[in-house]
């Protein structure tokens, strides 16, 4: 059997057009210098796993899977101790939550998500990226029923915490 040679140029093009996925995952799972290292490791692992991409699923779905697995179980993950967004990154005004600009609000959302357990973090991230329950189930390996039950709980928690934060700030 002849082993197919992966098309490097196509791969680079696809990763380049989906870099947003990698930025978001890095921001969720790493901080400081680790973020750059994680970005590098994700790209390397994507390339290493590329021969297993059969093309029958969306490139993005496959990318979510490899990138999230790398963030949770890769080299960096063994050493990383993520402490959430830094105070510098989280500079917010005294305005109520609803009046904060979009960037500040998403930073607060990141902060709340970073407090979740890694698996819950993965599930809510995929939900926010508008993946279907089936896709989330396939990526994590749990049932769609379990995904929906967990999502209700996580969303509820996030809403509650963002509201608490709102009243505090």
């Amino acid at each position: 059997m002849i082993k197919q040679v992966p098309d490097k140029a196509y791969f680079v093009e696809m990763v380049y057009s989906n870099m947003g996925i990698i930025y978001k995952i890095c921001k969720l799972y790493a901080d400081g210098e680790d973020r750059e290292d994680l970005k590098q490791e994700i790209i390397y692992q994507l390339w290493k796993s590329y021969p297993t991409y059969r093309g029958d699923s969306k490139f993005q779905s496959w990318m979510y899977r490899v990138a999230l697995n790398t963030a949770m179980l890769g080299l960096r993950a063994r050493k990383m101790k993520y402490t959430g967004l830094s105070d510098q990154e989280l500079k917010t005004s005294e305005d109520p939550f609803e009046k904060q600009d979009e960037e500040t609000r998403v930073k607060l959302l990141y902060k709340q998500i970073s407090k979740l357990k890694d698996l819950d973090k993965t599930i809510i991230f995929l939900y926010l990226e508008q993946c279907s329950y089936e896709e989330i189930a396939e990526i994590t390996g749990i049932s769609t029923k379990n995904v929906s039950v967990r999502l209700v709980r996580i969303r509820e928690k996030l809403r509650k915490n963002l509201h608490i934060q709102n009243s505090k700030s």
Partner: peptide, 16 residues
């Protein structure tokens, strides 16, 4: 949450 996520991320990673 999804709306907040999309809009905010588009702005946040503009310089990346």
């Amino acid at each position: 949450l999804i709306h907040m996520w999309q809009e905010g991320n588009d702005r946040m990673f503009m310089d990346e």
